[in-house]
């Protein structure tokens, strides 16, 4: 099995519901910015829910819409993709390609009847550890309001 699918299979299993339901989140992070941002948040001991499962990708441009769809198929309550701010891509333009693809993925989810709030796309830089933690908290609250995702089938 590839790294991605292994992660998806295992993570969902581990995120078996604790006493109080907490939304499970699949976060796909660019190695150069948001992943570093998450690292920063961690080393600064910032608090954010532990039900986030992080998949590191070399660039938000590597984010195949299938990753997002697979996340929902496996029953994550929310999926999030974070990349470098426009103009800041480590590979010059990967996030520009990602931008179109992700925008259309949002539209596809809408067409499929999945609440748009369950998918979140944002630009987060390596220095924005604070913002990373805040985003996760915010997304978690939003998902708590929405309630558990009832799955694709």
């Amino acid at each position: 099995m590839s790294e991605e699918t292994t992660v998806l299979a295992e993570e969902k299993d581990q995120s078996a519901e604790p006493q109080k339901w907490q939304p499970s989140i699949l976060a796909i992070l660019c190695n150069w910015c948001s992943y570093a941002g998450a690292d920063l948040a961690g080393s600064a001991r910032m608090q954010y829910p532990e039900t986030v499962r992080i998949v590191r990708v070399p660039c938000s441009g590597r984010t195949d819409p299938m990753f997002v769809l697979k996340g929902f198929q496996r029953g994550f309550d929310g999926v999030m993709v974070l990349g470098c701010h426009p103009g800041d891509c480590h590979y010059a333009k990967g996030n520009y390609y990602a931008r179109r693809r992700i925008a259309l993925t949002q539209d596809l989810l809408k067409s499929l009847g999945i609440a748009p709030e369950r998918f979140h796309f944002e630009w987060v830089s390596a220095s924005e550890g604070n913002r990373f933690a805040a985003l996760i908290n915010e997304f978690t609250h939003k998902l708590e309001e929405l309630g558990p995702f009832d799955g694709v089938a």
Binding site: M1, S2, T5, K70, Q73, L104, L108, L112, G151
Partner: peptide
């Protein structure tokens, strides 16, 4: 490898197939 969709004809696997196919057709 990776196994993106299983071969079985269940609703969730069919969802994965058709959703991904739609995305590939944009």
């Amino acid at each position: 490898e990776p196994k993106w969709t299983a071969k079985k004809a269940t609703t969730d696997e069919a969802w994965m197939f058709h959703a991904t196919r739609a995305m590939h057709l944009v």
